[in-house]
């Protein structure tokens, strides 16, 4: 596979060199302005939704309504996961909003363990909102601050384009394994959000490469479709099935498609002149 790609790339370079009439595809930086502007709008819409959803979620936590808070957890995270390539650029907020117990010395007992996964631990592992009030307040303050910072941020173009692969790598590393939402098992919600975020980036830059990279575009689209179709089998009325419902066969299908997507999408930056 890789050999074939390398070979066809060299053949292409060779033919471009010896045939003066064949223009080498080149994307001007100005062609990327529109996709990046559109992506910024997508990110802003998601971060505004995150603020609204987190308000309802943290209100339920603070009201001590365990069942309601549990039911809102998966959906609330989605707008964060969809824009993770940008959201995680703010290391302080990413740490306090989305760190896992493993990132802290004392794991679940660590006072620095805050944010979504700390609340997830309380709700799903301890079945209680006890002690979660201050964590909920901080989460609300953090997503509000995130939304504000995103508004002021000039998106780094290479992070936008690179984000398509980053999201798929994220899925491969933490969603396929069921590692991320280990207490709630709502990993498929995150998976879907990461997937949507990745596909959004690809769709935005797709017109720039469609002509010269037709085979690449077709292959990536087919893998996106494969993931979408498989994931759709687990759609429920208000979200997604728990991770343990995922069959071994489907897990394999997803893993294969996601790994290939991660690998293929990692070439996007180069194709768009952003390395």
């Amino acid at each position: 596979m890789k050999l074939k790609l390398t070979l066809s790339a060299s053949l292409f370079a060779l033919s471009a060199a010896i045939l003066p009439g064949v223009a080498v595809a080149e994307v001007s930086p100005l062609d990327l302005v529109q996709p990046i502007a559109d992506y910024k709008i997508y990110v802003s819409e998601n971060s505004e939704k995150l603020v609204a959803d987190t308000k309802a979620f943290t209100d339920a936590v603070k009201a001590g309504d365990v069942e309601k808070a549990k039911s809102l957890f998966g959906a609330t995270r989605m707008s964060y996961e969809a824009i993770e390539p940008i959201a995680e650029l703010f290391s302080d907020l990413d740490g306090s909003i989305d760190s896992r117990a493993d990132d802290h010395e004392l794991a679940e007992k660590d006072p620095g363990f805050t944010g979504f996964h700390r609340i997830e631990y309380g709700l799903f592992a301890q079945n209680s909102t006890e002690g979660l009030g201050p964590v909920a307040d901080q989460l609300m303050a953090d997503v509000t601050e995130l939304n504000k910072r995103i508004t002021d941020l000039t998106l780094p173009p290479e992070k936008v384009v690179g984000g398509a692969a980053v999201l798929m790598e994220e899925v491969a590393a933490t969603k396929i394994s069921g590692e991320e939402d280990r207490y709630s098992h709502t990993d498929l919600w995150d998976f879907k959000a990461n997937f949507d975020g990745s596909r959004k980036i690809f769709d935005l830059v797709r017109p720039l490469i469609e002509k010269d990279e037709a085979a690449f575009v077709t292959k990536v689209s087919a893998n996106f479709d494969a993931v979408d179709t498989t994931l759709a089998k687990y759609k429920t009325a208000d979200g997604y099935e728990l991770y343990d419902k995922l069959s071994e066969d489907d897990r394999k299908v997803l893993a294969a498609a996601v790994n290939t997507l991660a690998e293929d999408l990692s070439t996007l930056r180069g194709k768009l002149g952003l390395n």
Binding site: S28, L30, A37, K40, I41, S44, P157, L274
Partner: peptide
């Protein structure tokens, strides 16, 4: 380089939109 203006130009587009 032209590429350095990409971020500001995109942000300007967002402002205009």
């Amino acid at each position: 380089a032209l590429r350095a203006y990409l971020g500001p130009l995109a942000e300007f587009q967002v402002f205009l939109v």
